[in-house]
Write a protein that binds this DNA or RNA. Structure first.
Lengths: 247, 247
DNA sequence: CGAATATAATAACAAAAGTTAATCATCGCG
DNA sequence: CGCGATGATTAACTTTTGTTATTATATTCG
């Protein structure tokens, strides 16, 4: 059930069988199915408990009055969200699905049990939320400083590596269930320019993208071309010097 | 000593005398002075313990290989940083001062004591870190979706309100110890364009800025003009409908 | 299957923002 | 007091990115 989360956390530290069992059980308590392009929580709502994405893609986003929208974060299988948020009065952003999503709602009580008994697990969960914060910071850098070409390439590297960390890549290929409009709202470009920039990346022989299937043809070259430094993902406990051709 | 932090936390909930005393004492244990434009921690370093800004302005930032720099967050008096980070192997960004800074280093042990005994205080500290995350998300929106005019105005609103939350405003005025180059690196614009945009804000009668003194002449109008919604600062427990003319 | 709809691709043009360079203002300090 | 340095301002020009519109291609669903 919590296979993706477990796999992700094991990038940080080896979990005990007991840790894994506890996580798995927590993920079974209450699960929910949500349709593609539906909201899980809306800005202004009361903050929800902790949600774990079991399957599918979701995102945090914010809409301005005049309709402009910014995707603030992607929530991929194995991602936890809103750890601790119930303290706040109301949500300051929305969370919506991109694809069909299965998620597990984990009660505060369960969280307490998970962290109380298991020191390693507790550390691993802290690690996961620190990485989420680091990703958010990196997005600020990405949108603030990089060119369109770099921004887009950087995003693709990040998504690929995050999917790799949960075992959702096949060789140099992964799913990318995003429209160009969604990509545009992620990196602060217009749809037209995203399209242009994708052509550039293809033209440079760095990526192949057909439908929802993305292939990073030369991950190393792409990382260099867009100044992608994976340090902020903090996967270095095992996954350093990743070879795109392994499974 | 920890006056600004205390003042900030009291935007969230009333602290007991004991809470305040404990915070104040924690802030006295080990303090450090750092010169303007000096680094507190550098990317690649071992993560430091928790630092509390007692006075002055600092920032998180990241530098790309070719020298481009993005300021990722401002650390103002009363701000805490790097809660929990020691779990990570190394810093993925740097922290540097803008002005002279006094900070308190708070040991993990002290943090434990602070949170263990005092439920309210513990909640308030969680609130502070949730707000920091919310600010980071808002920056993504700001840089990703807004025009130069809106971006800059939004930043000024945020800084003013954050300073207000710690009592560092005088009427509609506050300090702004930033060069235009630093502002540029914050909102992803060139220095020249920041200058142009400042002229626009002045021309619209929304701000006055001489040297390091910023005045928001018509806060309401400015907020409307740049679509600034303060909800993400989560100050609503007391400070809603702030009047810029109060002290 | 095939119409309806959503998404992708291009082109032509407009606007926003970046670059370079020069001048002006301020400030610390010998 | 005036030198030197940093920061602010402005101008002229270039580049990047956005806008609008049209066509092509997929996808969905009756």
């Amino acid at each position: 059930m919590a296979e993706f989360l477990i796999r992700k956390l094991e990038n940080f530290s080896r979990l005990s069988a007991e840790d894994r069992r506890a996580l798995d059980q927590a993920a079974r308590q209450r699960t929910r199915q949500i349709r593609p392009r539906d909201d899980i929580v809306r800005e202004g709502d009361l903050p929800p408990g902790v949600n774990l994405i079991l399957d599918g893609w979701a995102c945090r986003y914010k809409t301005l009055e005049d309709g402009r929208r910014q995707i603030i974060a992607y929530l991929l299988p194995g991602d936890l969200c809103d750890h601790g948020v119930p303290i706040l009065r109301e949500m300051d952003h929305s969370i919506g699905t991109l694809t069909a999503v299965t998620l597990a709602e984990i009660t505060p009580e369960t969280i307490r049990q998970l962290t109380a008994g298991h020191a390693r697990l507790s550390q691993a969960l802290t690690w996961e939320s620190l990485v989420a914060a680091a990703i958010q910071r990196e997005w600020t850098v990405n949108i603030g400083q990089r060119t369109a070409f770099e921004r887009l390439g950087h995003l693709l590297c990040e998504l690929y590596l995050r999917l790799h960390a949960v075992g959702l890549t096949q060789g140099p290929t992964c799913e990318l269930p995003l429209t160009q409009a969604e990509i545009a709202d992620t990196i602060g470009l217009s749809v037209v320019h995203v399209n242009r920039t994708l052509q550039e990346l293809r033209g440079a022989g760095l990526i192949a993208l057909r439908g929802r299937e993305l292939t990073l043809l030369r991950l190393d070259a792409l990382q260099r071309a867009v100044q992608f430094n994976p340090n902020y993902l903090h996967l270095d406990h095992e996954g350093r010097h990743l070879d795109a051709n392994e499974t």
